[in-house]
Design a protein around this nucleic acid. Structure first.
Length: 370
DNA sequence: TACGCGTGGGT
DNA sequence: TACCCAAGCGT
């Protein structure tokens, strides 16, 4: 059992004050945020909007989230609206944002808030942690931002800011407890929500992964990494694994009126519950079936080149085939018309496939290292 | 604990 | 180009 360093008030002295003063001048303007001046006037963000934005922002950039957040708030202005929505509608609205289990848990969570909490989010970290999709980070963020509690909010930005400020050379994720201890010792009992958001804004705009703008940083005087001359050295991370390559084939069946044949992927696992065109399994290159002979049914399949897509843990090359057929959909499949295809729950990789088949100037073979 | 889980943008 | 990265969670 290793003991964490205890941070005296003096070690973190001034940290929160300097950071908050900076935030008062430089807070980003974000649609899900109440600006510091309004927080000072007593305004709090709707916990539903804080939760929705935090789920969307998990491992996802602000620019990617903006349009989705707007759409969701328009479609489902309250947690009750979302709880009452068909899950397929939620998946369709989430399509393209990635990490689709977030969308399923979002829906489950909304239902639980309504059925078990009277339509109000729990206002403590422990209570929030009982809900699906809410982990340590998100529970702390909601409790601080929506409920004004002094939770230690630690995300990737905070990890970077703190490992630099304290010159913590322990690699992540091993360093997380030490980072958490520092944040817990530093978070102010006044303005904890602003403090959390200030840390994240600092990490996103000043204390960036590459070429941090230390000259503009409100914490530069106390930053040990800057003093040592190489802030970019931090945070130290464990080595990454190599991404395996997989291959497969995808078959775009098109009806005379332009409708495309779709089916639904299994609820669990990769792209769980999302729509796809029929295709082979995605296997290691060795014995992958990637030709027209692997088609799910007989038709005049014509090759339309291939598409390339990178997932978190593997690279995928799909050979694309197209055929014009006019039959009843096989069981479990459906025809999606030109009008509905754009609102299906199609992940980006499948949009690439359909694009290649239909718009398809055959994609120029991409050169990749073997 | 380590892995499975998307996507798009930056350098 | 080939990485790296982004407000993590569930198992």
């Amino acid at each position: 059992m290793t003991s964490l360093p205890t941070y005296s008030t003096r070690q973190a002295d001034g940290f929160a004050e300097l950071l908050l003063a900076w935030y008062d001048r430089h807070a980003r303007d974000l649609p899900w945020r109440v600006p510091p001046a309004k927080v000072a006037a007593g305004l709090r963000q709707d916990p539903y909007l804080v939760w929705l934005s935090e789920i969307m922002l998990q491992q996802t950039t602000v620019s990617a989230v903006r349009p989705y957040f707007r759409t969701f708030v328009e479609k489902w202005p309250t947690v009750g609206d979302l709880a009452a929505a068909p899950v397929d509608d939620v998946m369709k609205a989430w399509a393209g944002l990635g990490y689709y289990s977030r969308a399923r848990n979002l829906k489950k969570c909304a239902e639980m808030v309504v059925s078990q909490h009277g339509g109000r989010f729990p206002d403590t970290e422990a209570g929030l942690r009982t809900l699906p999709g809410i982990g340590p980070y998100t529970a702390a963020a909601i409790s601080a931002i929506a409920f004004d509690r002094p939770s230690a909010v630690v995300d990737g930005n905070v990890e970077r800011v703190v490992t630099r400020y304290r010159a913590i050379a322990t690699p992540l994720p091993e360093a997380k407890p030490e980072i958490g201890a520092f944040v817990a010792s530093t978070v102010p009992h006044s303005r904890p929500g602003d403090f959390a958001q200030a840390m994240m804004d600092l990490g996103a705009t000043i204390c960036t992964p590459k070429r941090p703008a230390c000259v503009l940083c409100p914490l530069r005087d106390g930053c040990r990494a800057l003093k040592a001359g190489d802030p970019e050295f931090y945070p130290v991370k464990a080595a990454k694994k190599e991404k395996p390559k997989r291959v497969g084939a995808a078959f775009v069946a098109v009806r005379r009126d332009g409708a495309v044949l779709l089916r639904k992927r299994p609820e669990k696992g990769l792209l769980g519950g999302m729509a796809e065109v029929p295709g082979t399994d995605w296997t290691a290159r060795i014995d992958g079936a990637t030709g027209a002979e692997a088609a799910p049914f007989r038709a005049n399949w014509r090759p339309k080149g291939s598409i390339y897509h990178v997932f978190t843990h593997f690279e995928l090359e799909l050979s694309v085939f197209i055929a014009y057929v006019d039959t009843a959909p096989p069981s479990g499949h459906w025809w999606s018309s030109r009008a509905t295809i754009h609102s299906e729950a199609l992940p980006t990789v499948m949009k690439k496939v359909i694009e290649a088949a239909i718009e398809g100037a055959t994609q120029k073979p991409r050169r990749r290292p073997e």
